[in-house]
Amino acid sequence: MQKQTTPDHGPQTHGTPRRATFQWIALILATLATWLVGQTGATGTAIVGLLAVISIWKGSVIILDFMALRHGPLLWRALILGWMALVWAVIGIAYWKALA
């Protein structure tokens, strides 16, 4: 809350540039994959599942590493990751309902 009072944290809270760069490249490749699926117009439960997995994986990189929640309190890590999971669960249910 107040100004950081614990001076005992090191650079690894935000990872290393090298790691961040690899993650960035992977995120871009994952985006291309989603785009490619969109271009082919492929659809179906398996495809939607794949898109969800890609989105959740990308989100977890942002949450754990970019937002540095990997080193954050369990509660907050669970809340934000939980949001991601919940949103996709709801989208999944709605998609399944649309098929039925």
Binding site: Q12, G72, P73
Partner: peptide
């Protein structure tokens, strides 16, 4: 703290 100093074990910290 210098960035190169050896790091103690860290308590969880909200960035």
């Amino acid at each position: 703290h210098s960035p190169a100093a050896p790091q103690p074990a860290h308590a969880p910290r909200l960035a």
